[in-house]
């Protein structure tokens, strides 16, 4: 029973990270129809920037995270402006290949700067607390809390503000959004900034409880794709729920079925969904 509770807690912690990453991916897909294969690499860069700012420049955890989010958001804007916008009217295959190129580039640059070895970011909240008899590090609780706060803030932004409504309108119908006077180019840049910022936030949150290394982005990209396909490409609630569900499935599957094949869960789920429903589980909507 205690093992089960522990695994559920672990699932929720990992799930917060998965959901944040999947949210960014689903937002850019919804508004631009670009499957950004480099999304997980923005997450990896976010983690590395926070790590470097803390270990070399003496920043505190939250300041490092804020800088990292800002830098990545700007990188997201640059990516949209320089790579994806010029390809918008080309064949979709071209944008996908470009995304793969960006991904190779980001990983290789990280490898040159920080090397292959695993880095550890020390959390200021390393202490262990007891919650209903379960032992858990304070950082995990903070991760759960801040992730939830940010998700709620994002949902409010998307549903209650003009900028958020513009993003949703563009996702529903680009031509229609243009017709009512929405600057869809600006929406695209905003979306990329939010998406990359979310990735940097997730990367900085996860760095203290896992390790930082150049190839950490590839696996999470694939998992985020599994989540987004499961929840519906472009769907925000789908990405939120899907992230937690996948993480719970992994942590329970890893405990009770087979730890060796834990990472396979996501891809088997993905393959099953596509096998029976070739266009994903849900219709697209933000």
């Amino acid at each position: 029973m205690e093992l089960l509770a522990q695994q559920i807690l672990n699932g929720l912690v990992t799930g917060s990270v998965y959901s944040l990453v999947a949210l960014g991916l689903t937002l850019t897909y919804g508004t631009l129809q670009v499957p950004n294969f480099a999304h997980g690499h923005l997450y990896m860069w976010g983690a590395y920037l926070s790590y470097t700012l803390m270990s070399s420049a003496g920043f505190n955890y939250w300041a490092a995270m804020a800088v990292s989010i800002t830098v990545l958001a700007l990188a997201g804007v640059a990516l949209e402006r320089l790579v994806f916008r010029p390809l918008r009217n080309d064949s979709p295959v071209n944008a996908m290949i470009a995304a793969l190129g960006v991904m190779l580039f980001l990983e290789a640059v990280a490898q040159n700067i920080w090397g292959e070895e695993f880095r550890h970011l020390e959390s200021p909240y390393g202490g262990v607390v007891s919650v209903f008899g379960l032992l858990v590090t304070a950082h995990r609780l903070i991760l759960l809390g801040t992730a939830a706060v940010l998700m709620v803030a994002l949902l409010l932004f998307l549903t209650r503000t003009i900028a958020g409504s513009a993003i949703r309108a563009t996702a529903q119908n680009r031509e229609g959004a243009l017709l009512v006077g929405i600057d869809t180019n600006r929406v695209a840049m905003t979306t990329f900034a939010i998406s990359a910022g979310l990735a940097a936030f997730a990367g900085s949150l996860v760095a203290p409880i896992s390790l930082v290394y150049p190839s950490m982005g590839a696996m999470i990209t694939l998992k985020a794709f599994a989540i987004v396909v499961l929840g519906g490409m472009g769907s925000v609630p789908g990405a939120l729920v899907g992230g937690y569900l996948l993480a719970l499935a992994e942590s329970l599957g890893g405990t009770y079925v087979s730890a060796t094949y834990q990472d396979l869960v996501a891809f088997v789920v993905l393959a099953l969904v596509f096998t029976f429903k070739p266009s994903g589980l849900f219709k697209e909507s933000v």
Binding site: P35, F37, L222, F225, V229
Partner: peptide, 18 residues
């Protein structure tokens, strides 16, 4: 191949990974 466009690329990426 029953999936098209982006879905096909993502699906085959998962197959390659599996």
């Amino acid at each position: 191949l029953r999936s098209k466009g982006h879905y096909f690329a993502i699906f085959t990426m998962a197959v390659g990974l599996i």
